[in-house]
Design a protein around this nucleic acid. Structure first.
Length: 948
RNA sequence: GGGCGAUUGGCUCAGUUGGUUAGAGCGUCACAUUCACAUUGUGGAGGUCACAGGUUCGAAUCCUGUAUCGCCCACCA
């Protein structure tokens, strides 16, 4: 027996316990044919990441599932790792360089990459350390990084395979360009945000009309139609792009302007002549219905440019500074150029009007710079063929989203999928396995080598750099400068983490792998498809959808069966937590102040399934208080247990011994709770699960069972003779506590382990190896035999009578602990005998000094009454009573009751109700009416007696 | 423009397939405290479930519409 401190000290426990788990190697998973696999791959946090509440929530869910399934007998693997996060990490290191007054170009590519690796070595494991603080039971021996050499091998394999299938291509397109990061981005990486801008109406002169000098006539309809004899008006939000205009477009159906098609206008300021063209794309309703066309700087305009063979004029440098094509505006930043052009147009009276206009503008998801639609040559993945099986799998239920509604979001995106721009003009990342032969590029024409399917002569796609060109045999070969989108490696995570592929021919580059290959392949076959993916909604497109596509393409199977999408963590005002808003609640600070278990339990219990959670620091008190409650209940138990007694089989005990009511009751309640808990967990209803446990531990085990058990325990303590009752009480107290700890363990791993070890270490000497940790204990099974509805209803009667007594005391301001005289008057003999069974508990917990139970109405002394079920609870009082007040109180209650009974009566007189409602509902209603009437009669009897 | 989510006591939220008197935590008020726990115990007050229609014997729950807030998607310059 051991004395525990009266407060749970999380700091003292957590690090010690985590180290213990690791030293016992309890997180490791391996192929085990005797067990079913359960596997989760972690959404790899950015290697630059530091733990925020989103991570805390996300990883707590995963850890709960992993620990739960492990206890349920699955071989449970949580694959950990980090993502190299191309742009984000490059930005971090560039910022570090900037402090030394350096740019990455000053170092050169190789030296810069050395710096990034250095940075990674130094800081890259921060997030992993923090996940450990959270209690994460990942198999750390397997920790992966998306830039590991083996992982790169997977990436290359995939690139080459897709290329060979014709699903990767290079093309000139308008892509999302970040002028600050100076790289292309995918459509998903362009975050659209509403921006308050202007719509500028600008006059373009008609060349023919100027020549004819018919300026002066301008009739009313022309003014309304934004045209004049000598100019037209176009509307634009981006006037700076006009220097790149190569046409003006209108809808061919637009009666207002039909006559203008084919005419020539002059772009103001740079005085370029351009044609007026007709294109279906133009919306007649918007602006003036006349649109300036800038094919090199807008994706719609680009399409039109191709259709009408317009000139593509690039007006910008990659950093969004205008180039020589911009004439006088050469050298100005795009936004400066906008101002300057507006000024110049105003001066020349070429602006008709300026209207405020809000529209969605793309921003770089890494640095928030406004994205520029930019024409450039990039690499793309053709997505439609990949999407097909991924759509089917969700439609036919091989993959399930929880909550369901996210499947719709997923399908909608997948069914309208666009090609994926995968090349990035940065240095940190997987370099494209694309090589160029200088010689062949020079000579041009179609490539002869069939196997590499290159469209253009001189392009070689291969996992390893070729020594010489397979086409011309030349040796002057260089690699493409670009790297791949980070997500092009992440989408392989569910199988690349198992060192896929295994049949690579390029063994020379990975000698270290040879011995491991068999084992790795077995691992993958065993754990893939993984069981569930846990993530936040914002990465469904980035990652979840793409993993599903890659899973089918390369493994021929879905990568996971369930996708659990949880909410976003927000601050009290509903804003996303972010550093820039300064509204962060740091999980590590919470751990420091409240403890990891408190953090985990609070987060889970307040986050409804799939709903966003609005967080404030105060909410962590819930978990802290609960941990402390559990701690003290355990402390009490340990102080009162003779642990040599408790090592018996519960089911045997239950069958052999005639257990007392409180024991039968709490066991029944425990298994009822367990059954509900299992159901909640199977449906990913984590907050329900947490609250079911909370309710049971606090309000049933602590509030009632421990209190009921105290008399037995206190008398059987400290080496004194252990009576039969006390022994059974001890056993049940121990069993329920121990099993409850197991149920709580996935949620609160540290405190449950600490208590459990104190319980089991002392009780089992010598301990079998399986008793090392609560982690490896089996999850309790529901014992249906032990669920005892009769015991539950008997106890319920006692609880309600006790509550009534406490109520009456509060009514007349008697302290709860003060002993009183109570008489219970039962309706009949049956009820009386039920009361007799629970009399001792009522005496005890109601703090009653003299309890009398009557089988029939009796003559009452002075006192106050309450009616519970079929019992009148009468509290005897000496001179404390104001009879009028008591009459008033009871009358009020009777009136309220009469009201509700009236509505019941009328319902039961309603023929439709009797005819249409299910029988059991009608029966229930009748029963409840009868009970209510009984109670009302009792109340009225008491009132009339008082009046005498 | 399309889609999704939310609207329930002072605050934060539960409420599975419609079924007695709508729950919890926090806060608040009263009472208690040598008893495992003040990170506690006991009890009270506090809600016409955003609004308007409809379906139904019966609606917080299902349907239609409205309002407010939030999120995601979209090539109307």
């Amino acid at each position: 027996m051991e004395e525990l401190n009266s407060r749970y000290n999380s700091k003292e426990v957590e690090d010690r316990m985590y180290a213990f788990w690791q030293s016992e190697n309890l997180f490791a998973a391996k192929v085990n044919p005797d067990k079913k696999p359960f596997c989760i791959v972690i959404p790899p946090p950015n290697v630059t990441g530091i733990l925020h509440m989103g991570h805390a929530l996300n990883n707590t869910y995963q850890d709960i599932l992993i620990r739960l399934r492990r206890m349920q007998g699955f071989e449970s693997l949580w694959m950990p790792g980090t993502d190299h996060a191309g742009i984000a990490t490059q930005n971090v290191v560039e910022r570090q360089l900037a402090k030394e007054g350096l740019k990455r170009q000053d170092l050169g590519r190789d030296k810069f990459l050395e710096r990034v690796w250095q940075w990674k070595e130094q800081y890259g494991s921060t997030i992993i350390r923090q996940l450990k603080k959270l209690g994460a039971s990942s198999d750390w021996q397997r920790v992966r990084f998306t830039m590991d050499e083996e992982y790169s091998q997977s990436v290359k394999e995939v690139f080459v395979a897709l290329w060979n299938k014709g699903l990767i291509y290079q093309d000139d397109k308008i892509i999302n360009w970040c002028p600050r990061c100076q790289t292309a981005l995918s459509d998903e990486e362009a975050a659209h945000r509403e921006v308050q801008g202007n719509l500028y109406y600008i006059r373009y002169s008609l060349k023919e009309e100027i020549r004819n000098s018919k300026f002066e006539i301008r009739d009313k309809s022309q003014i309304e139609n934004h045209t004049s004899q000598n100019y037209i008006v176009v509307a634009t939000t981006r006037p700076e792009t006009m220097v790149g205009d190569t046409a003006v477009a209108l809808n061919p159906k637009d009666e207002r302007y039909k006559h203008l098609i084919g005419k020539t206008v002059i772009v103001p300021l740079i005085e370029r002549e351009i044609k007026i063209i007709a294109d279906e794309l133009i919306d007649m309703e918007f602006g003036t219905g006349l649109v300036k066309v800038t094919p090199a700087h807008d994706s719609n305009d680009y399409e039109m440019g191709k259709r009408h063979t317009l000139e593509f004029i690039n007006i910008m440098h990659p950093n969004a500074v205008l180039n020589t094509n911009a004439g006088d505006y050469n050298g100005l930043d795009r936004f400066e150029a906008r101002e300057a052009i507006i000024e110049d147009l105003k001066e020349r009276k070429l602006i008709e009007k300026i209207e405020p206009h809000t529209h969605a503008v793309g921003h770089c998801y890494r640095c928030s710079t406004v994205i520029e639609p930019y024409l450039s040559r990039q690499w793309f993945v053709k997505m439609e063929p990949l999407a097909k099986p991924a759509i089917e799998a969700v439609k036919d239920g091989r993959i399930n989203f929880y909550p369901k509604r996210w499947a719709k979001v997923y399908l909608n995106w997948m069914e309208n999928i666009r090609d994926w721009c995968i090349s990035r003009q940065i240095w940190w990342g997987h370099r494209l396995p694309v090589y160029y032969c200088k010689e062949c590029l020079k000579t041009g024409s179609q490539c002869k080598v069939e196997s590499v399917k290159c469209k253009e002569k001189g392009i070689i796609v291969a996992k390893v750099k070729p020594q010489k060109c397979p086409d011309c045999g030349g040796g002057d070969i260089y690699q493409d400068e670009d790297v791949l989108d980070t997500w092009f490696s992440s989408w392989l995570w569910p199988f690349a983490t198992f060192y896929w592929p295994f049949n690579t021919k390029d063994e020379a580059c990975l000698p270290a792998r040879q011995g491991r290959r068999m084992k790795d392949e077995k691992d993958l076959n065993y754990f893939y498809p993984t069981s569930v993916l846990v993530t936040a909604p914002e990465i469904i497109f980035f990652w979840v959808a793409r993993m599903i596509m890659a899973g089918f393409e390369f493994m021929g199977k879905e990568p996971f069966k369930d996708v659990y999408i949880h909410g976003t963590v927000r601050d009290v005002e509903g804003k996303k937590m972010s550093k820039s808003l300064g509204n962060i609640i740091d999980p590590l600070e919470i751990i420091e102040k409240y403890g990891t278990d408190a953090l985990r339990f609070s987060l889970i219990s307040i986050t409804a399934s799939g709903q966003d959670v609005f967080l404030s620091e105060q909410k962590f008190e819930v978990g802290r208080n609960f941990a402390n409650k559990l701690w003290n209940a355990s402390r009490f138990s340990l102080m009162n247990l003779d642990l040599s007694l408790v090592n018996v089989d519960l089911c045997v005990l239950f069958e052999k011994e005639d257990l007392e009511l409180p024991e039968r009751w709490i066991l029944s309640r425990f298994y009822s709770m367990l059954s509900a808990l299992n159901k909640a967990l199977d449906n990913y209803r984590f907050n329900d699960a947490a609250n079911i446990l909370y309710e049971f531990v606090w309000h049933e085990f602590c509030d009632w069972y421990i209190e009921l058990a105290k008399p037995n325990l206190v008398s059987g303590l400290a080496g004194e003779r252990v009576s039969g009752e006390s022994k059974n009480t001890q056993i049940v107290l121990y069993k329920v506590l121990e099993k409850t700890l197991r149920c709580l363990h996935p949620f609160m791993p540290f405190i449950t382990e600490e208590i459990w070890q104190k319980l089991s270490l002392t009780s089992l000497v010598p301990r079998p190896p399986s008793f090392v940790s609560i982690m490896t204990q089996p999850w309790p099974h529901v014992q249906k035999k032990i669920i005892d509805k009769k015991a539950e209803s008997q106890m319920q009667l006692a609880i309600e009578v006790i509550t009534a007594i406490r109520n009456l005391k509060a009514e007349v301001k008697i302290a709860p602990a003060q002993a009183v005289k109570v008489m219970l008057i039962a309706k009949d003999k049956e009820v009386k005998s039920a009361l007799d069974t629970v009399a001792s508990y009522i005496t005890n917990l109601g703090r009653v000094e003299a309890l009398t139970i009557q089988g029939a109405p009796a003559k009452l002394k002075k006192g106050i009454s309450a009616i519970v079920h079929e019992v009148q609870v009468f509290l005897e009082l000496e001179g404390l009573l104001d009879i009028d007040q008591e009459i008033e109180r009871l009358t009020k209650e009777a009136d309220a009751l009469a009201g509700s009974l009236k509505s019941k009566e009328s319902r039961l007189k309603n023929k439709d109700f009797l005819k249409k409602a299910p029988e059991e509902i009608v029966e229930k209603e009748k029963e409840s009416l009868a009970q209510g009437q009984e109670k009302l009669a009792s109340l009225q009897r008491v009132i009339s007696e008082l009046k005498k």
